[in-house]
Amino acid sequence: MATQETADNTVLESNAARRQRYEALVRDYYQDIYRYACWLTRHKPLAEDLTQETFMRAWRAFSSLKSQDSAKAWLFTILRRENARLYEKQRPELDDIDEHEMALPDAGHLEPDQQMEANLLHKAILSLEPEYRIPLALQVIGGFSGEEIGAMLELNNNTVMTRLFRARNKLRALLDGSNEQD
């Protein structure tokens, strides 16, 4: 009887601890996950749905998360797979982006020149091909290294670094081209 009670308490404590670990995960990462979803889908309502799907999947697979240290990469990987599973097949990469939907928030502190530059870069990122935009988002939003991005996207480190380099060059060329026209 006492043994059963102890076993029950252990299970109960572990359920409570599991829920608390999940809550900590939400608080720590939901903003970055949502941002990554925005750049992956280029559509905010879809990004919100995808974020919810990601955390639903994460909760169901919570026992497979072995270490809190790997939680962030784990969530980003789930998100990319959920996007592929749920949306990519039914919703091919959009040619026309709803720019109003993905508009850059007003940054009142910027000078007009800087605001124009920011808007230009924002549009340029949105128009990057996914093979460049996704590693860039993982690096900038997630803070992941080339090797970590490679593991997530199933690419080798050299390929990731090349794509990151080219992504920046494409963006720089767009900005510089615009500057020269000015």
Binding site: Y34, R35, C38, K44, E48, A118, I141
Partner: peptide, 8 residues
């Protein structure tokens, strides 16, 4: 600044 701009 730009890639972290989207607010949930």
């Amino acid at each position: 600044n730009i890639m972290k701009a989207p607010v949930p």
